[in-house]
């Protein structure tokens, strides 16, 4: 099968433009930007000091915001992409053009991924520029931590998009896809910590199994990588964190990034398989 990169570009451009016209997506993006600015403003309040915090403290506060909003953006955008078009019939018409399925999937996913990255860059960028302009930036070290956090957030966004895509490929109706995406989001966000804790207690898992359970969730992967990025140690995560650092040492960060990349690639391969089996219907 020959792949025409021009087709991928055309489809990606259209997808990016559609996403930027999507009111829900714009709402998410603006909410993320506003909340990250608000977090930067209030990050110092815990220390009894009001004003804009530096990159490090703001970055730490942003982790929870990213964990909450970014997967929701990625999952919902991915879930609506194929199922919505399949329901409207535009997918069938699109595939009747001289393009193949992999070009369509790549074009759509690249376009949507760029839209997500643009939203994150806007949120992180506005906050970063504001911190710098108000003189609260604390040197290049903190800026690089902040930029790495942006990179990790982008990886989480694209991984969520990829999972949303898989949901979309498996469902026929947009409403079903969105419902499933919200359910997955709830499971990943709210049952992440509690689920690991409960499972660990019930099954009496040892620390290595507990770590494996943590790393099976892309949100937890992001969280571990983001905390490690800021603190250089994982004491805050308890025995599993200490075990991870002791076992993998300096390889831990590349390992976490690699696993996040796997969360992008594997669901995408699943999407390709399902899409080929089902065709445009």
């Amino acid at each position: 099968m020959t792949i025409d990169f021009e087709n991928i570009l055309i489809l990606a451009q259209k997808e990016l433009r559609d996403a930027l016209r999507n009111r829900w997506f714009l709402l998410y993006a603006l909410a993320f930007a506003a909340l990250s600015l608000a977090l930067a403003w209030t990050a110092l309040s815990g220390a009894g000091d009001y004003g804009l915090a530096g990159f490090g403290r703001t970055g730490a506060s942003l982790i929870n915001l990213v964990l909450l909003i970014v997967p929701l953006m990625g999952l919902s955008l991915g879930a609506m992409s194929l199922a919505g078009e399949r329901e409207q019939g535009t997918l069938l018409y699109l595939l009747a053009q001289p393009i193949n399925q992999i070009e369509l999937l790549l074009g759509k996913s690249i376009g949507l991924a760029l839209a997500l990255v643009a939203a994150l860059v806007l949120g992180f960028g506005l906050t970063g520029v504001t911190i710098t302009l108000t003189g609260n930036g604390n040197g290049s070290g903190e800026i690089s931590i902040y930029l790495r956090l942006l990179l990790l957030s982008c990886l989480l966004a694209v991984a969520s998009l990829s999972i949303g895509f898989l949901i979309s490929a498996a469902t026929k109706r947009g409403a079903t896809a969105i419902g499933l995406a919200l359910f997955v989001w709830l499971v990943l966000v709210f049952l992440g910590d509690l689920g690991v804790l409960g499972t660990g207690l019930m099954l009496r898992l040892d620390v290595s199994q507990l770590l494996a359970l943590v790393l099976a969730n892309p949100l937890q992967l992001f969280k571990v990588a983001a905390i490690y990025n800021i603190r250089d140690n994982l004491e805050v995560l308890g025995p599993a964190g200490l075990y991870a650092l002791r076992t993998y040492g300096s390889h831990l960060f590349p390992l976490l990034v690699g696993l996040l990349l796997l969360w992008i690639v594997v669901p995408f391969l699943g999407t390709t398989y399902l899409f080929r089996r089902k065709g445009a219907l």
Binding site: E6, N7, I10, K14, D18, R21, Q88, G89, T90, L92, Y93, A96, Q97, P98, I99
Partner: peptide, 29 residues
């Protein structure tokens, strides 16, 4: 499919696009 023009039963285009944008998009493909 390069040698085929298709007119579907259900006329489903992307509603947010204009006629010109639709023509340009499919012409490029």
């Amino acid at each position: 499919r390069r040698e085929i023009g298709f007119v579907p039963q259900e006329l489903t285009f992307h509603d947010a696009l204009s006629v010109t944008e639709t023509l340009t998009f499919y012409a490029r493909l």
